[in-house]
Design a binder for these strands. Structure first.
Lengths: 144, 144
DNA sequence: GGTTGCGCTGGAGTGGACTCCAGCGCGGAG
DNA sequence: CTCCGCGCTGGAGTCCACTCCAGCGCAACC
């Protein structure tokens, strides 16, 4: 009844229609039904599942691993601990990614501060004065 | 004097030797010098630059865009504002990524809580009881 | 003074994740 | 009835970022 067509799901999730079909072929999206004429229908459970798949993909889980997760059967009890463990592993991966992002952010902000300082002082860069085809070392000693 | 060989840089940065060479060909790594026999030497400035390139790549900047950044000349003053702007854009991108990661994390922890609840209750999944080739709906009504 | 090992180059190959297409069927609008 | 738009399928194509050679040179170690 509340099941959606592929276009609606595409708009709702931001995944392209082709990607939705491809994911399904690849075994990442179960629970998709068909009309009598063969068109896809996505019941709410499928739509919810897609949100999970998107979270896994966006956080860097490869398609093959998502498939593995999905193949852990139709929500049967004995597989829950396994799925839980996979999600836990991914959760840890996400936390590492956040840490890494913060480190990289620090690198960028550091570099940005350097550029601002140089702009203020009216200097070229300390590093990389790599033969700009005109004349070298026109920059002065740093003020600090 | 303190310049490093490619192997050392590879070990120091975690980038493979092939990747270092490829990055250089692609114009992502300037400042690399050569010995009289043609071997690469990485002075400290090059090594520092590589760290920046890594931060950009890891945070999702495409190789082409890093190249663009690098091509903004050998640290000459007039390019500093442009580089600064590019870094600022990337900084914002990183912040969006962190936000997205947190959203995805919430999806995962929510799903994990659900599995834990089901395990405790000894139930199959509410969703996705997709024809596990034996018999449907052996799960009971939820206790909550 | 050979052979082992690292480095170099240019180019080909790979893996992952889509993305596009031809060719067909269905169902509603005119 | 005919045409348009959407959806379907299987398969081919694309893009990106590496990764892997083959074939060569230098240098050092035994």
């Amino acid at each position: 009844m509340t099941a959606l067509g592929i276009r609606e799901v595409s708009e709702h999730t931001g995944l392209s229609i082709d990607t939705l079909r491809w994911y399904e072929r690849e075994g990442l999206i179960p629970l998709v039904e068909r009309t009598s004429t063969g068109q896809r229908r996505y019941p709410p459970a499928a739509v919810r599942f897609i949100a999970l798949v998107q979270a896994l993909r966006r956080t860097g889980m490869p398609v093959a691993e998502v498939r593995h997760f999905v193949q852990l059967g139709g929500g049967r009890l004995e597989n829950h601990p396994v799925r839980l463990a996979l999600l836990e592993a991914q959760r840890e991966s996400i936390e590492r990614q956040v840490d890494q992002l913060h480190e990289d952010l620090a690198v960028l902000t550091g570099k940005m501060a350097e550029y601002r300082r140089l702009i203020d002082a009216g200097l070229d860069c300390e590093d990389e004065v790599a033969a700009p085809e005109g004349g070298t070392g026109r920059h002065l000693r740093s003020t600090a």
